[in-house]
Amino acid sequence: MRRRFVTVAVTAVFAASGATAWGAAAAAPAKASPPQQAQSGVYVALGDSLAAGYQPGLGDDKTGGYVGGVYQTLRSKHRGAKLVNLARSGETSVTMIAGGKCAYAEGSQLAAATKVLAKDKGRVRLVTIDIGANDVQTCVTRTGVIDLPCVQSGLAAVARNVPTIVRTVRAAAGPQAQIVVLNYYNPFLAVYLLGQVTVAQQSVGLQAALNGAIAAGAGAGDAKVADVATAFKSTDWTPTPTPYGTIPTNVAMICGYTWMCAKSDIHANDAGYALIATTVRPYVR
């Protein structure tokens, strides 16, 4: 996912604690469980710029972002686990399969993943996948103009490609691997601050359609779904006070946990990546 779309992954919970994460404030790392006996294992991360840990002005951080938080949890359980992060900023569900967006010796991210997973088959503990946002993000402008035919075409691509991706990963990783597919938060809620209330409301429906296609694709390969959308309170319109004034809670979450309101950049800040990681942690075993 590049700079203009959401999409997805806080250890401090917005509503429960009353604490917000304005700007780039980082959430405190979760306490690690007492380490168990060292065991081998592999965590393979696939996806777009969220999986690559992108931050505006800093670029990708493949050992940071939500992947870094998930990896920390895995290592607290299996000290010998290693991380292989194949994610690339800008990847779409189309290019993940066919290549063309990012350079991989194997031709595509999915082909590279298949090679790694086949090599480590039997030792793969976890695979995370976030993909699909870039198929639709160019269909919505920063000022809230929605190109519906473009959205429909992007959603069709996600519905067609995500099942193929997940089935291919499952076949290469084996039945013992835990595969987790992440859905996305909705950065376009931020247009509420521009007075585009109707567009902000419409964006919730588009987010639901995208995440529905992702969930259906996850089911094709017996994968779990990490519910980032719910973690970001995407449908909660309850008013809440913020530095931007009293605004809906879902808009406040985007302002607090992404760069969208501060820099017009859709990517998560440190607190947002920590929140995304919490949606995956229940599936780390």
Results as ranks from 00 to 15, higher is better:
R4D: 07
R4Y: 02
R4L: 08
V6P: 05
T11Q: 09
A12W: 14
A19E: 04
A25M: 07
A27H: 02
A28E: 10
A32Q: 07
V44G: 12
A45W: 07
G47D: 04
L50Y: 06
Y54G: 10
G57C: 02
G59M: 08
G68V: 06
H78T: 03
G80S: 10
G80L: 08
V84L: 11
L86T: 12
S89A: 12
G90Q: 01
M96K: 04
M96T: 07
G99P: 13
G107Y: 11
G107D: 07
S108I: 04
L110Q: 03
L117A: 00
L117P: 09
K121V: 03
R123H: 11
G132A: 10
G132W: 00
N134C: 13
Q137H: 07
G144V: 09
V145S: 11
L148H: 15
P149C: 14
C150D: 07
L155K: 12
A157E: 13
R160N: 15
P163M: 14
V166S: 12
R167F: 02
Q178I: 14
I179W: 08
P187C: 10
Y192H: 15
A200R: 11
V204G: 04
G205M: 01
L206M: 13
Q207H: 02
A208T: 04
A209C: 09
L210G: 12
A215D: 00
A215T: 05
G217M: 11
G217K: 12
G217S: 14
A226K: 00
T230D: 14
T238E: 13
Y244Q: 12
P248E: 00
N250V: 13
A252K: 01
G256L: 11
M260C: 02
I266R: 11
A271H: 03
Y273V: 06
R285E: 02
